[in-house]
Design a protein around this nucleic acid. Structure first.
Length: 308
RNA sequence: GGUGUCGUAGCUCAGUCGGUAGAGCAAUGGACUGAAAAUCCAUGUGUCACUGGUUCAAAUCCAGUCGACACCA
């Protein structure tokens, strides 16, 4: 029998019902939850990120919720490191733990690992951004062709963030990005079983609209006002916040801003689905299929005792 | 009731001199290794209100019907 501990991953688009499903599963298994949501990490952001509420946090112990400040730098690589550092102590007490969230890159960083690139330095990043604004994306493309012609063929050269990142790696290490990109999964001393939660598109979109209305009723605008002076921070470049900053700037009406939040949340959900559905390890359920989900994991966990 | 204007994509609208239609937004599909709720790429969506007429040919011209709006009674 495979004695390795189990990491249960629950993924899916925003507003599908991941939080409730994860809590139900964690309670059934008597275990803890580790969030994989790149915006719920921030202590200051609450309403707009649909963080689990106090009652939910009281039901099941959560990690990676509110452990950062919006002023902090964070990344998928740091998440991988923090997660893997925490995991052994949790596995001492629990044969399985639940990871839940919608940030695909962060989930993959933990499950497959990411390569050992240097962190970006603020100086180099702002220098390259300056080139982008002053001389245009063409200059960045030219630089990447010089530093790493192989990668220049492989990546989306229209995407400034990809270009900037590749150049950062080339310039800080003095070696081409493509040489350092291993493209293979790291070994892990735990098993991973992934489920994806999804709903018919119309139902998911209706849930998104309803949740945005609830967020507004719960005081999202007041929360966003507090962060107006900080709106340049990456953590605030977030659906639900950026649209209301546009309202506070006088660019759009409040009604328009709320509609924009709904639209951008739908698009976000679509991008999440694109990411998760290409993962062949993902087994799909609808969130209300609690019994089926439990049974799915019963096969992975203590097989002799799981049959009643 | 009368007169006028309008009715084209999910929405807002454009459509020249008759040659079966196109913008924006929405939507849909995709990419993704230290910013990822970020960033980027691609793609259409049609009973031109309906019925008939004129014409080789009608979103376009004519008549009627229905609907919306405005004004007049």
């Amino acid at each position: 029998m495979d004695a390795k501990p189990l990491l249960i991953v629950i993924a899916g688009p925003t507003a599908v019902g991941k939080t409730a499903a994860a809590i139900a599963l964690a309670r059934a298994l008597g275990t803890v939850i580790l969030s994989a949501d790149s915006r719920q990490f921030y202590a200051e952001l609450n309403i707009g990120t649909a963080k689990p509420d106090a009652a939910q946090l009281g039901e099941v112990l959560h990690y990676f919720v509110g452990q950062l400040s919006v002023h902090d730098y964070y990344s998928a690589a740091r998440y991988e490191e923090d997660f893997l550092h925490l995991l052994p102590s949790l596995f001492e007490k629990h044969p399985a733990v639940v990871m839940v969230g919608g940030s695909g890159l962060y989930i993959d960083a933990v499950c497959r690992g990411i390569d050992d690139f240097p962190d970006p330095t603020p100086e180099l990043r702002s220098y390259l951004k300056g080139i982008h604004t002053d001389e245009g994306i063409g200059k960045l493309q030219e630089l990447l062709r010089q530093h790493d012609p192989v990668h220049a063929q492989a990546i989306d050269m229209a995407n400034p963030k990809r270009l900037l990142r590749a150049l950062e790696v080339c310039m800080t290490t003095g070696r081409p990005y493509s040489e350092q990109r291993m493209n293979q999964s790291k070994a892990r001393d735990f098993r991973v079983v992934k489920i994806g939660l999804n709903l018919p598109r119309a139902e998911l979109f209706a849930r998104i609209g309803g949740r945005v209305d609830k967020m507004m009723a719960a005081g999202l605008l007041e929360e966003v006002k507090q962060f107006f002076p900080l709106r340049h921070l990456n953590a605030l470049n977030t659906v639900g916040y950026k649209e209301l900053f546009a309202y506070l700037d006088g660019e759009v009406s409040l009604e328009r801003a709320v509609e924009n939040i709904k639209t951008n949340t739908r698009r976000y959900a679509k991008r999440q689905l694109t990411w998760f559905t290409r993962d062949p390890e993902m087994k799909w359920f609808e969130p209300h299929q609690e019994a089926e989900i439990l049974e799915h994991f019963a096969h992975c966990l203590n097989p002799p005792r799981s049959r009643l």
